[in-house]
Design a protein around this nucleic acid. Structure first.
Lengths: 229, 229, 229, 229
DNA sequence: GTGGTCTAGACCACG
DNA sequence: GTGGTCTAGACCACG
């Protein structure tokens, strides 16, 4: 007859309510939340509870706090997996090699997906990156372009989960394997080899050749990963 | 010449300090944090700031709050990627199909890694799961065992990042593609086919045959994924 | 175990950054700081924060604001200790006598240091001051020359900290013991005695006789301080 | 209580008014200033001006801002000369040796003043410090006690200007001649010598023997300063 | 002027 | 005793 009371914490309910409003479209990207004081009054809770809720939403990646400006629904969630993945990496005392394994694991099959779905815009972007890389021997620029190259393929997969994870992996590499990208492109012979491999990958993507994309990407990582093991 | 200023919030510094103490081993899994009031005094900040910090640590998955009990360092971080990945899924209005793509992308190459690194204990565990599946036609049990089967392979890869992501993916499927696993195993013909595929994967893993593992896993997903598209 | 959190305010970081640039030579004496609006943009903070920072730098004595002209790095810091020392004097409800004690304490041993390090230029300057004092019985001029006499000895010590403090002390005397210097030189007998004492000090300095300098200076203050007690 | 401000450099007038109220006792140590908003209203100026003024008062050492707490008149001004003296030290590119010279210059004659004015309480405190130093060979503790020893003598001089400057000098040494104090007391032979010297100084102070205090202190610094030149 | 950040202190519920 | 919640009030920062 009587149902057990579940003490749901106030801040959790606030989180749920705001989450819900984002999901169902009541709140859209870029929207400004009411001021904390107003929210507190509208929801009839204390500002401390509102603040705890906003802190949670911030960490989840939903909300962005700007002092003196207000709280906003985030425009992009592209990098929202980095923090938690980085956390796992450090807490589990994972080795840098595992980041590279993860990258390899994901990018090979992602290449197939990209080969299937890629559109002209992404293809062209990849073409341009390849051309840019031919023009310079600056290792910083080359490393940045190489990063962009892989980002574009992930993007071409049309899968935001894949894209998000690979973005996080990319930042992980920047953070925990400092200079990794630069090292390999600082050598001219390497740059030639990479250029060839990028070209192969591009051709497979262009031809929507899934098997070819997998093989080219595998070859690419066989070459690249040698440098860290 | 002039570098942008980054204003550091108090709660962020509290988070960083506790994070740091977990990383460097000062705080270990299962440890109890000092009471909020004590922490506030020791760090010379208000309790509200302590609470915002703990809220962040809780969402990140580092800390667990038990009312009346205290705040504890989490024992396990195995599922800490689910929340953020789920968030991305919903906010980016991703389709269930993308979850399946992500799973396929990751598991195929993970099979190769597992084939290389798998030890007897994981092999045996997989063997047992296969045998268990032969014994029952209960779809709930079968679905659970199938989940366990894939978990074990991820575990055998020896890569905690991969394991964590696949765990998150697994929960995503449970949450957003309800009944997915059960549907496929409710049919006897399917159970036979799956048994054959699991056997093939097992053999490849046992023989440390990377290419074989990839092919077997690919075949497996070609079959499975048909059911959702 | 837990370290106190120090919340860093934005303006403090701005102060630190500009301080640092002055220390390491990026900004030199006389340099003009960028316009407040530009600074605000470059540092990505509000103009209010910039203004608070500049206010601090002004009080510290690093920066000089010229209405309509801009903010400049100060050319000289010789008098930058007066304000704070004066502050202490007033807030601690210190007595004028303490200023004189401080002067005595410092100048006696400073004479020894000066005796060790004095160069021809300072020696000559002191010589000239002594001669000037002989030429006039105007108490204003005499007081000014007497002040200059002690300044030169402090300068001869080659120690900028000592010089700065004694400068501040000198201004303190002007401010809080009005007419002190004039009173003593308004009497001819005194002027004779002072002339003798200055001569003795000069000779000790010229001979690099540290003990002699101390003794002469002590004698000088034994005579001078009588007038205020 | 507060009078409206008229014109020109608003923040300066605010500073002057508050300064004045501190000087004449309207505002006392530990008093809380009205909230910024109230001050702004009472003085009929903008809050930005109030904030700039408070920033100045903070740097001067008159006021302490506690976020969320309010602005308070400082209880103690003992360390308010450190910042400006440190500034002079760095900007004039002074050498660490000059800090030591300044210390020597001041402490020798300060000993004489202390010998004249010291009371039983300070004498006893010095006695205790000496006894404490005999009990331990820990260099950190010894260094701290040595610092305290000199602080007490400065305090015994009864001259707050001297005390303030020596405090600043003491912090300067801690900041810019790291490990200076520890180095000398890490050697047992040195600790013995220092103990003897401290004893001599103590006896001179106890007997109100000014010349003896100067000589003992001079001997002390002849010994100590050898370690840095 | 608006809004975020922080503090101090109080009461409640749980263990 | 400890986390959960709330309040009132103040500084901090931005536009």
């Amino acid at each position: 007859m009587f149902k057990p009371i579940k003490s749901t914490k106030v801040y959790e309910q606030v989180v749920e309510q705001i989450k819900g409003m984002i999901m169902d479209g009541t709140l859209k990207k870029g929207d400004k939340l009411p001021a904390e004081r107003d929210l507190a009054e509208q929801l009839q809770v204390s500002r401390a509870s509102i603040r705890e809720a906003i802190r949670v939403l911030e960490v989840i990646g939903l909300v962005e706090s700007r002092q003196g400006g207000g709280n906003f629904i985030r425009e992009s969630f592209e990098n929202s997996l980095f923090e938690p993945l980085s956390m796992v990496f450090m807490l589990e005392k994972s080795k840098p090699q595992e980041i590279l394994e993860l990258r390899r694991i994901m990018e090979i099959e992602t290449a197939a997906l990209a080969a299937r779905k890629i559109n002209d815009k992404d293809l062209e972007a990849i073409r341009e990156i390849i051309e840019e890389m031919k023009k310079t021997d600056d290792e910083i620029i080359n490393a940045a372009l190489d990063k962009e190259f892989h980002y574009r393929i992930a993007h071409a997969s049309g899968n935001v989960l894949v894209l998000n994870i690979l973005n996080a992996v990319s930042i992980l590499i920047d953070e925990f394997i400092k200079g990794a990208r630069e090292m390999i492109v600082s050598n001219e012979e390497n740059r030639h080899r990479l250029a060839e491999q990028h070209e192969e990958i591009y051709i497979a993507l262009k031809n929507h050749n899934q098997k070819g994309a997998i093989d080219a990407m595998k070859k690419h990582f066989d070459f690249v990963d040698k440098y860290y093991y």
